[in-house]
């Protein structure tokens, strides 16, 4: 007899009209709702309510520091769509997210395949493979700016040795810093792909791979015809999730490259408008653009997730 199934038999307090008996059991949904309520109010208060406030802010000329706040209708959005630097920003963001996700995916699958092999010291190597993901963004940004410093950086020196030009390249200069940022971001976030792919690789039945080996299939054919089809759903999910993640990434972009106008992705543009130009309302409109895109991505992602579950169930 399950104690959790009291819902159907529990009498409702209202129908009796008398004080409830002291030992009467509350229905299950009551406990469920009670246990959920702290999480519900926390998420409502700090995530959902702010979204409502964001919508409102985006229709005002709110100032970041002064108590100025009046409705301006769609002015912020119209201004945004007319501003050429907004479209530059959209382009930069798409490039940044697309390039970093593509590179992470290719490298992540390669590294996962490597770490999936059996060899001595594998657990230590795995630590190395995952370590960059754990480092705070500010540390990654500073260490890499120091490594790429044009006069004393170890990597600048290395690049100059491998690829000697007339002048040592300044990898932090406005026209190269975007590419350096892509390298740094790939260094930092590839471990997430490695872990996810590795987890999936471990569920592939090794006997199918062995059978193919016995039948004479080379490493490439085994990967292409057996491993890759198995990885397909994970990779699809990862592309969606990681694109969404990189598209809205703020910390590393801003800390490594985002204080000027060369690498002004949409999150950086949001931050600069609000805390640089003190235009809270206008910055809120940029944040709204990001929010709407996030909602679309998430809906697509959840659709595929549920469809996948139904297929595997």
């Amino acid at each position: 007899m399950s104690l959790t199934r009291t819902t159907t038999s529990a009498p409702r307090a209202g129908t009796r009209g008398v004080a409830p008996a002291p030992r009467r059991r509350m229905p299950g949904w009551f406990w469920g709702a009670l246990l959920l309520s702290p999480a519900f109010f926390l998420v409502l208060g700090v995530i959902a309510a702010p979204i409502g406030y964001l919508v409102r802010l985006s229709f005002t000329d709110a100032h970041a520091y002064l108590p100025k706040f009046s409705a301006v209708g769609f002015d912020n959005y119209v201004g945004l769509l007319k501003a050429p630097h907004f479209w530059d920003s959209v382009r930069t963001t798409v490039w940044y997210a697309g390039l970093t996700v593509g590179l992470q995916l290719v490298l992540g699958v390669l590294i996962a395949l490597m770490l999936h092999q059996r060899f001595r010291g594998r657990s230590v190597i795995r630590l190395f493979a995952l370590a960059p993901y754990m480092v705070p963004s500010i540390v990654v940004a500073l260490v890499w700016r120091w490594l790429l410093d044009p006069t004393t950086g170890a990597y600048s020196w290395f690049v100059d040795k491998v690829w000697p030009g007339s002048e040592p390249p300044n990898l932090l200069s406005p026209n190269l810093v975007f590419w350096s940022l892509v390298v740094v971001s790939v260094w930092m976030f590839t471990p997430f792909i490695v872990i996810s792919v590795l987890a999936r690789l471990q569920t592939i039945d090794p006997s199918t791979v062995e059978a193919a080996t016995v039948d004479g299939a080379g490493a490439w054919r085994r990967f292409w015809h057996i491993v890759l089809p198995e990885l397909k759903p994970v990779l699809y999910t990862l592309i969606l999730l990681r694109f969404m993640f990189m598209f809205t990434k703020f910390d590393i972009v801003y800390l490594f490259a985002g204080t000027g106008t060369e690498v002004r992705t949409l999150p950086v543009l949001t931050f600069q408008r609000i805390f640089g130009e003190a235009r809270l309302g206008s910055g809120a409109a940029v944040a709204m653009v990001l929010f709407v895109l996030l909602m679309i991505f998430t809906t697509v992602y959840l659709r595929t997730l549920y469809r996948e579950r139904e297929e595997t169930a």
């Binding site: 702010p50 802010l57 969404m244 703020f250 999150p267 609000i274």
Partner: peptide, 24 residues
């Protein structure tokens, strides 16, 4: 529905939340 809402909340980017949170 609650679980689904939580999944949506999980995907919210900090930059989107921090703007109104600052005002609030």
């Amino acid at each position: 529905a609650f679980s689904t809402a939580i999944l949506y909340a999980y995907t919210f980017a900090p930059i989107v939340i921090v703007v109104p949170l600052y005002g609030m």
